[in-house]
């Protein structure tokens, strides 16, 4: 099993390298730093000097891959690829347009992001699985039928409307929670309640219905019939047999997102004014701050790869075929 995990970990390395190369190509080859400068400075009134200065300020004035003007190691290290792409591996993200250190920013913003994302994830998972099990248990009854209709209707609503509608109802009409904002410490609670509830509701439809399909598929398997033939109660069949097997496909989609919880939620953070990484990313996108977007792409991918690893490890816990196979 240890060999298995080591193997999976090693397998992650080429993927991380691939992502690094891909982001480099996307940010520096599709458009040259000159193009970016021209766009940032305004296409019409731009002078070559301004472009040069813009590039020099950000360290984009170096050659892309090979610096012929330098000797030895420096011919490789004094390049955009080394400075901007390879250093990502060392978590050296450079500075944002406002000249703040990105790594530092990320550290301080992780907390609020997690404070929102973790409860949404955990409570949401519990709610969705419970509903899905319920629908599977009452399959082919009206309860199940209307449950599915509800899920389909709920997944047909854009998450933006959940947020806007939620803010209107909870804050404006009922005055139950502040409409947006954030404070550290325990005060965060009152700001988080609404975003958490809304986050859970907006993921409900799709997930609950998907889990229901998974559980129903398991319930058609032969071993479920065996379990019934043993005289086990339907609840035992559901929880001991169906749930445990159904968790395997569920895990595939769930565990992989756990590390990316650090990234927070783009939309709700910006709507609710939570100073996490999600709103940081949105602001960077809107301000066209390439350094931040590039860093977030890399971190996001790295976290996702960690998620893939965790998924593999979690398989070993629920699926003996992986553990011993």
């Amino acid at each position: 099993m240890l060999a298995y995990i080591v193997r999976r970990t090693l397998y992650a390395i080429p993927i991380l390298v691939g992502i690094n190369l891909f982001t480099f190509a996307l940010f520096f080859l599709v458009n040259t730093p000159d193009d970016m400068a021209r766009m940032q400075l305004g296409v019409k009134r731009v002078t070559p000097e301004a472009i040069q200065k813009w590039k020099a300020d950000r360290g984009y004035d170096k050659p892309l891959l090979y610096n012929a003007g330098q000797d030895g190691v420096r011919s490789v290290s004094e390049t955009i690829f080394f400075e901007k792409s390879l250093k990502l591996f060392a978590f050296d993200f450079g500075r944002a347009e406002d000249n703040r250190d990105i790594a530092n920013e990320i550290r301080t913003r992780m907390g609020p992001s997690l404070a929102l994302a973790v409860p949404v994830f955990l409570v949401g998972l519990a709610v969705n699985i419970t509903f899905a099990l319920g629908m599977a248990f009452f399959r082919a009854t009206y309860l199940d039928f209307w449950g599915v209709i509800l899920c389909v209707a709920m997944m047909s609503i854009s998450s933006l409307f959940y947020i806007i509608g939620g803010q209107y109802l909870i804050s404006k009409l009922w005055h139950l929670a502040p409409i947006s904002g954030y404070e550290g410490g325990l005060d965060a609670l009152k700001f988080l309640v609404m975003p958490v509830i809304i986050g859970i509701i907006s993921s409900f439809g799709g997930s609950a219905r998907f889990y229901r399909t998974v559980f129903l598929e398991e319930m058609g398997k032969d071993y479920v019939r065996t379990a019934r033939a043993k005289g086990l109660a339907e609840s035992v069949v559901m929880f001991r047999h169906v749930l445990k097997n159904g968790l395997i496909p569920v895990l595939t989609g769930v565990v992989v997102v756990i590390p990316t919880l650090f990234l927070g939620s783009l939309i709700s953070e910006s709507f609710f004014g939570i100073p996490g990484l999600g709103s940081y990313t949105i602001d960077a996108i809107q301000a066209q701050d390439f350094a931040v977007v590039r860093s977030m792409v890399f971190i996001g991918s790295a976290l996702y790869i960690v998620g893939l690893l965790l998924t593999d490890i979690s398989y070993t816990m629920v699926d003996p075929r992986v553990r011993f196979g």
Binding site: L266, T281, V293, V297, Y304
Partner: peptide
């Protein structure tokens, strides 16, 4: 592996 929204945004 690249988060979809970020990839699209970039």
């Amino acid at each position: 592996s690249i988060p979809g929204v970020l990839l699209i945004a970039a």
